[in-house]
Design a protein around this nucleic acid. Structure first.
Lengths: 227, 227
DNA sequence: CGGGCTCTGTACGTTTGCGCACATACACCG
DNA sequence: CGGTGTATGTGCGCAAACGTACAGAGCCCG
C-alpha cells in the first residue's frame, strides 16, 4: 500500500462509497449560489431578510481561522460567536480531561456559540478549527442584542440549534453501532460537504482524535476503504 | 450468582460506587421542596414567576404515562409537549430503522418536545416512557403561544435545551470511551437522580437497548458491579 | 549530506464485546 | 399439575479494537 487514501492533502474524489451512514445535514446545496448583497457564504446569515441581514453583518468583523485554533475550551466563557464562511469548526467533548471526541461539525451552514443563544455563557465543548478559512465574528453582547431585536435571526438560530442537536445524536448512535471504516467514511463525507471541496488537510493522528480511536485504527480503516 | 443486581424491581441502595462518570445534570436538589402553589414537581415550570406559571399550567392537562408508552417516533409530527412530574422519558435515536440508542433522559428537570420550542415540528428521536408516572401535557399550538408571550418560559426552556445538548454530548463521549459496567453504573445513577428513588422497574433486555449492547453484556456488567 | 522531526505502515499479544446456543428460575394460567 | 412465556445466568468461538513497539518515508534545516 503505497498511495495513501489520506495523505496530509487529500483527494478522495473517486472512491466515495454509497454513503450508508446518512449525513444528517446533507441534502442542501453547497454551490455558491448565495445572495449577492455581501460577501458572506454563511447560510444562517444568508437566510435573513435584507434589513436584519445588514444589521447583523454590520455587528460582525471578519476573521481568519487557522487550522488548530481553539475558539473555546469547555467551561470557558464564550466572548464571541462565529459564522463560518469557508472555515470548518469541530465541536469536541472532553472526558477525563484529556480524551476528546468530536460530537459535531460546524461549517457555513451554522454558527459556533449556540449556547449564547440559549442564554448560557459557558461552553460545553472545545471548539477546534479543523478547516482553515474565514468567518464572521460577533461579540457576545452584540449578538444577544441583535438576537433580541431580530425575530428572523432567532428563527434561523433555533432552526440550526435543532439541526445541531440532531447531528450530535446521529453521531452518537453512529459511534456506537458502526465500525471504524464506516465512521471514517461518514466523517470524510460530512467534511467534504461542509468545505465544498475534495481537498483538505488532515493527518491520521488528527482523525484518530476526532473519531475517538487509535491512530493505527485509522490507518487500517483507510486501507480497507481503498478496496 | 443468585441475587441479581437488576431484577425487574431494583433496589441498589447499598452498592453505588463512587460515580466516576459524572452525570451532567446532577448537582441539583431532588427533594420535594417545590413551590407550593400547585401540585407540580416539574422544575422548568417551578422556575417560572407566578403569573407565567399560572398561565402555562392552565394550558396543560395532567396525563399518566405508562411504562413503554411511545410519545413520538422519529419523523412524527409532535402534537404535544410534556412536562414530567414524576415520570421519566428516554430519548432514543434510531439507526438502520431498528437499532436504538438512548441519547438523553428527561425527568422532572426538563421537558419533552424541545424541537417545538425551536420551531420544528418533526421529532428527531423516539421518546419512550421509561419510568411510569404523571406529566403535564400541552398542545403544540398552545405551547407556542405561551412561549411567545412568556419571556421567563423562553429562558427556562433555553436553559434546559442547553442542558440537554450537554447531556447528549456527554453521553456520546461516555458511550465511546467507557466500558459497559461503567456505562451501566452511570445509567443507574442518572435514572435514580431523576426518579428520586432507588426502586424502579427494568429488565436486562430493556437496559441492553438503552446502552446499545447485548443483553448478555448487561448480565456480566451487573455481575461485575456487584463486586 | 546527515541528523532530527513528523507522518505513515506493520506487527503481536490482549481485552472487550458480539453472535449464538442453551440451561435455569419464576410466574401465570387453563 | 404441567405448559407456556418471560427473564436471567453461562459457555464458546470469533471479530474488532486496544496498547505498544518499531521500521520506513518524506521533509526541513544546519
Amino acid at each position: 500500500m503505497t498511495a495513501s487514501l489520506i495523505p496530509p492533502i487529500v483527494d478522495f474524489r473517486a472512491e466515495l462509497p454509497a454513503a450508508q451512514s446518512r449525513a444528517p445535514q446533507s441534502g442542501r446545496r453547497r454551490r455558491q449560489t448565495d445572495s449577492d448583497r455581501t460577501p458572506t457564504q454563511n447560510k444562517v446569515l444568508a437566510a435573513l431578510p435584507g434589513k436584519d441581514f445588514e444589521s447583523v453583518v454590520a455587528g460582525c468583523e471578519p476573521v481568519t481561522l487557522a487550522f488548530g485554533d481553539i475558539l473555546y475550551e469547555p467551561g470557558d466563557t464564550m466572548r464571541h460567536v462565529y459564522f463560518p464562511c469557508d472555515s470548518l469548526v469541530s465541536l469536541l467533548t472532553l472526558v477525563d480531561n484529556h480524551l476528546a471526541l468530536e460530537v459535531g461539525m460546524v461549517g457555513r451552514e451554522g454558527m459556533v456559540g449556540i449556547p449564547l443563544a440559549l442564554g448560557v455563557d459557558a461552553s460545553p465543548f472545545r471548539a477546534l478549527v479543523q478547516g482553515a478559512g474565514t468567518a464572521l465574528r460577533m461579540k457576545a453582547a452584540t449578538f444577544r442584542r441583535e438576537l433580541r431585536h431580530s425575530l428572523p435571526l432567532q428563527n434561523a438560530i433555533n432552526r440550526y440549534t435543532y439541526g445541531l442537536m440532531s447531528q450530535i445524536s446521529q453521531t452518537a448512535a453512529c459511534n456506537r453501532f458502526h465500525m471504524v471504516p464506516e465512521r471514517l467514511a461518514r466523517w470524510l463525507l460530512m467534511t467534504r460537504d461542509r468545505v465544498g471541496s475534495n481537498h483538505f488537510q488532515l493527518t491520521q493522528e488528527f482523525l484518530s482524535h476526532m473519531l475517538g480511536v487509535r491512530r493505527v485504527g485509522v490507518t487500517k480503516a483507510a486501507g480497507q476503504l481503498q478496496k
